[in-house]
């Protein structure tokens, strides 16, 4: 059984508890152990970098140091946490001065980060480490006929990390296919949901959300799948506000990819946190059927 250091991030404690629950259930179902980092702290989201960069790196480094101490690669289900943690780890590995400075601060908590671990998004663990074949194998109730809009959003693919394809990634579509559902051609899949603009520039963010919802509806999607708590919140929780603001009539469920995987694996919906959403997912659940 492979084991990872799991960094849930602040949103998954409550706002996106269902993401946490479904992540635990599905990783467990494919034989992967997620050990929560003890006493982890906030990664600073995007906001921290508005105020002080060095402090932002330090906060992230504390989580990295604890994951390293446990001896496992770090996994983040939130795309913002993932991006912050991935790049902090990269910069600390590359820049000795920076790492000396930050390790000097970490001493106060008896920690040190030497850069020996990797940072992964939860979806990468499924797609690359577990593998799509294995996921297919565990899919007992394929979601045949379910039209899923795979919404990547921003920080799971950007900024560019290595030589990966940032303009036309396919891994989310492949994951959707592996559980028997149909990934739709979703043109806006890489467009921003507005992130924290929902607070600081409400009108702009609601416009972005509206455009995304419209594009998903135009592509005939039954559900939008997300891999980030911020995206889920903006698209789902603010869907009603979009309807009021723009006189629209959207009512499209927004589910975490782990929830879709979970129902395809026949896991009980309650354990996947289904029921805490604003927009009913009942219709989606009916697609999970044992093949005739």
């Amino acid at each position: 059984m492979s084991t990872y250091s799991y960094f849930p991030g602040c949103s998954l404690e409550k706002m996106a508890l269902s993401y946490h629950q479904s992540a635990m259930q599905t990783t467990n179902a494919v034989g992967v152990e997620m050990k929560e980092i003890e006493d982890w702290n906030c990664c600073g989201a995007t906001t921290y970098f508005h105020v002080d960069e060095l402090l932002a790196y330090t906060l992230v480094a504390r989580n990295l140091a604890m994951a390293e101490k446990a001896g496992h690669d770090l996994v983040a289900p939130c795309s913002a946490c993932y991006k912050n943690t991935y790049f902090t780890s990269k910069y600390l590995k590359e820049d000795k001065d920076l790492s000396d400075h930050i390790n000097y601060a970490l001493e106060q908590d008896n920690l040190k980060y030497s850069g020996s671990i990797e940072v992964k998004h939860l979806m990468e663990v499924f797609v690359n480490d577990v593998g799509l074949e294995e996921i297919k194998e565990r899919t007992t109730k394929p979601l045949a006929g379910l039209r899923v809009a795979p919404y990547y959003g921003c920080q799971i693919v950007r900024p560019k990390k290595d030589h990966e394809d940032v303009e036309n990634p396919r891994f989310f579509e492949e994951l959707v296919s592996s559980i028997g559902a149909d990934p739709v051609d979703f043109a806006y899949r890489l467009r921003c949901c507005g992130g924290s603009l929902i607070i600081t520039s409400r009108e702009a963010a609601l416009t972005l959300v509206r455009n995304l919802l419209q594009n998903a509806v135009d592509s005939d999607a039954d559900v939008i799948a997300t891999a980030c708590p911020l995206c889920q919140t903006n698209l789902e929780v603010y869907q009603m506000q979009v309807n009021q603001e723009f006189d629209t009539n959207f009512s499209i469920p927004i589910m975490y990819f782990t929830q879709l995987m979970g129902i395809a694996m026949g896991l009980p919906k309650k354990k996947l946190g289904i029921g805490s959403e604003f927009i009913s997912t009942d219709k989606i659940l009916t697609y999970a059927k044992e093949p005739a």
């Binding site: 702290n41 060095l54 906060l59 504390r62 000097y104 908590d109 008896n110």
Partner: peptide
């Protein structure tokens, strides 16, 4: 509100940066 267990260390750590 959530809070860290080792919040005092955490604050001292931040203090070394700012």
């Amino acid at each position: 509100p959530p809070k860290l267990k080792r919040i005092e260390n955490f604050k001292k750590m931040a203090d070394r940066i700012i």
